Computed example of a mutant assay.
Amino acid sequence: MNEVEKLTRELVRTPSHEDETEAGDLIEGWLRDETDAGVERDDAGNVVARRGDAELALVGHHDTVPPADGQVKNGAPTVEKRDGRLYGRGTADMKGALAAGMVAFRDADTSDVGFASFVGEESGGVGARHATENGFVPERAVVVEGSTGYSSPGAFDVAVAHRGRREVRGVARGERGHAGDADDDGNPVYAAVDSINQIRRYESPETCPEIDGEEVSLEGTATVTGVRTSDEATNVTPSRCAFTVDERTVPEGSLDLETVGVETEVVGEMPPMVCDDGGFAREIREAARETGASEYVAKPHATDAGWLASAGTSTVVCGPAEQGEAHTDGESVDLGALVRSERIYRAVLEE
């Protein structure tokens, strides 16, 4: 068993869906024991290791979404190997990539590099935001979220842009009363429906940033994902009707909340990312192409790369997980891709 696989297994077996402390202890202890870097644990629980000025950093996160019933045995997360893949919660998102980054960071023969594992990525990037606001802003970063297989099966692609995410809550208010005496103008359900239909007519912005002479496409969306009234009785009009919007944002625009027609509140946001350094993106892709196919792609999901880019770090996303693996009941990662990612990360750090 190679070291990346062994470390991945250990990380996956360490639960981090409710409390990241134990996983953070494991990562911090390993980095202190295995590397000569300065290792810190900040107030949020992020683990950061630095050699010198850490101008280039590998960045991941060690929290996960809750495991499915089939991913737990005797109260602990499970990991198993089948057909050249590791199965278990966090194998793809993203403890496999985290293990590859840790080994690459240890073995890279270079200085002025860093490694960071954040908490709270699945909760809006709270760890990344805390770290950047408190001075962790390397010049360049590779976020090791999944990017494999976007352009073609098996390609270790480099995501040079991704959409952001904004969660919006809308609230329409009215007068609670008997349904038989209801007035349409006072029914908040109708007001909420009017706003929802307006959101359905929203023209999604699209942007095609050019990185290293090539264009990638990002298109925003706004989707209503839930509606709830303040009263469960079926013979009264409620005093309040609330709805939730999942918006995927792009740098060029987002839904104008003033036009929705009801009270709105942004309850969570992760910014989009576009790499601002074509030369850096090219270096990452060249390192990936030493091990096989690789293209520039745009990732549809928000990641901690958005917070790093917003703070001024030139950022790309490059990792072994394939699209559609994260958060699933059968989550898995290809062992060959893990080995490949460690080689790429080490080459990037040494370059």
Rank of each mutant, 00 (worst) to 15 (best):
D276C: 11
I344P: 02
T234P: 02
A44R: 14
A108F: 13
V333T: 14
G278C: 09
Q323E: 14
T225L: 03
G164Y: 03
E247A: 15
S239Y: 09
D93T: 02
E20L: 08
R163N: 12
V39F: 05
L7N: 03
A99L: 13
A155M: 10
V160L: 06
L98T: 14
P67D: 06
N187K: 07
C208Q: 13
G330A: 05
A155V: 07
A128N: 03
A159P: 04
H301R: 08
E322V: 15
D109Y: 07
A242G: 06
E210N: 09
T148H: 01
G90E: 06
A57Y: 14
G164I: 02
D83P: 01
V266H: 04
G70L: 01
E210S: 12
V119C: 12
Y202I: 04
V113R: 03
Q71K: 03
T313M: 05
A23Y: 01
L56Q: 03
N197M: 10
F280A: 02
E252G: 15
S332K: 09
F105R: 01
I196F: 03
G60M: 03
V297W: 01
N197P: 00
Q198R: 14
A321Q: 12
T249P: 07
S314C: 06
A302Q: 07
R201Y: 08
D194F: 11
K6L: 15
L308M: 10
I344L: 08
I211Q: 15
A76S: 11
E214C: 07
E206Q: 15
N197W: 08
D183N: 12
F115G: 00
D25F: 13
V171T: 13
R201W: 03
L31R: 11
Y150I: 15
T303W: 06
S239N: 14
V113L: 05
V339M: 01
V126S: 14
N197G: 11
N74I: 03
G75L: 04
F136S: 01
G226T: 06
V158Y: 07
E252W: 05
G180W: 10
S254E: 15
V236K: 02
R89Y: 08
S204R: 12
N235G: 13
R106N: 09
Y150S: 09
E215G: 04
S239K: 10
V59Q: 07
A172R: 05
F243T: 10
A54S: 14
G60K: 00
A293P: 02
F115W: 09
A128V: 05
H178W: 12
G60D: 10
M1I: 09
V333P: 07
L218F: 09
V216Q: 02
D36F: 00
R165D: 03
P138Y: 04
S16W: 02
E350Y: 11
K81M: 07
S332V: 00
G45M: 10
T91V: 06
T14A: 02
S151L: 08
I284A: 11
Y345L: 12
L58R: 01
D63Q: 13
G220Q: 02
K73P: 00
G24T: 06
V227M: 02
G101P: 00
N187H: 11
R248C: 00
T313P: 04
